[in-house]
Amino acid sequence: MKIEFGGGLEQLFDNKQTLELHFDEPEVTIQTVIEKLAQICNELRSNVCLFLQDGLVRPGILVLINDADWELLDKEDTVVEDKDTILFNSTLHGG
């Protein structure tokens, strides 16, 4: 599936704005995706990654599945497939 980063989060992932992830299962929950990303992030940043906080996505990050806020779906439990696009977007405060 396609993972996109916005609002500076790409800096946690080697400055890649998009990543392709594949899972052996045809469907996984978004929580599984997040754990996989946290692992990638930790490896890239030598075990110090600020993607998660207390096991949850850090405050200030919106999670969008196919351009819809995961709060409109089943949040962490939302089932995603290979054709889905998931955007992790950090809020900006400048102006």
Partner: peptide, 29 residues
């Protein structure tokens, strides 16, 4: 808001929709 080459916009507290704290309950540390 805007930063670097990115920007975001939303209408809040309108037609019984969300407020900023609905979207971002906790400020960044």
């Amino acid at each position: 808001s805007a930063l670097r080459l990115e920007g975001q916009l939303t209408i809040l507290n309108y037609k019984n929709g969300p407020c900023y704290r609905c979207l971002f309950p906790r400020p960044p540390a």
